[in-house]
């Protein structure tokens, strides 16, 4: 199996390109039928963005989990053990971005794994939400090396780039 090397790449969003079609949320639902974890949230009346785990370097959810269900994977992504998770919602409360939502029925907390099942199979593959984005608003790249050419760029929930059209 090829080695998964997703540590350098992050989910990047250009809000200006988002057309609000919800394909990202639909793809997440289809791929993680048990615990879909990407939600499309309205920021303002006509602006929205996919709200998904930022995979923080110093992840508060990881520190807060009493069951050690949250852990940092080899790739650097913050992962959740489905076996250990008890659905106590500690991570939901700790998450500074409010993107970890508890699943009350299954008593588990949905957690973005950047579609590690796909990336392990094919290192150049993309997370499902990125793969289906029809406008190119969602990207999966190394923000230190590849920054989209224009617009606001959100990485880990922060604006890291505001460039103007040239």
């Amino acid at each position: 199996m090829p080695e998964f090397d997703g540590a350098d790449r992050q989910l990047v969003l250009e809000p200006d390109r988002c057309i609000g079609c919800l394909s990202c949320a639909a793809a997440c639902f289809m791929g993680h039928r048990d615990t879909p974890n990407l939600h499309y949230e309205e920021l303002e009346r006509w602006t929205g963005m996919p709200a998904v785990c930022r995979h923080c370097e110093e992840a508060p959810c990881l520190e807060s989990c009493p069951a050690d269900a949250m852990y940092e994977g080899e790739s650097g992504a913050v992962m959740r053990s489905r076996v250990l998770c008890t659905g106590c919602r500690s991570c939901s409360l700790a998450c500074p971005f409010g993107v970890l939502n508890a699943e009350t029925v299954r008593r588990q907390v949905a957690k973005c794994d950047i579609c590690v099942d796909r990336l392990e199979e094919e290192p150049d593959a993309l997370p499902r939400c990125v793969a289906v984005c029809p406008s190119g608003a969602l990207k999966f790249l190394d923000p230190e090396e590849e920054v989209p050419e224009a617009g606001y760029v959100l990485v880990s929930g922060r604006v890291v780039c505001e460039s103007h059209r040239v």
Binding site: A26, D124, L126, A131, C133
Partner: peptide, 23 residues
């Protein structure tokens, strides 16, 4: 009875369908 979408990584616009195809 569960369906899972597959998105070929080498197919066109980063490979995938819009919400209509997913639906």
């Amino acid at each position: 009875g569960h369906g899972t979408m597959q998105f070929p990584a080498d197919s066109g616009f980063e490979g995938g369908a819009c919400a209509r195809g997913l639906a």
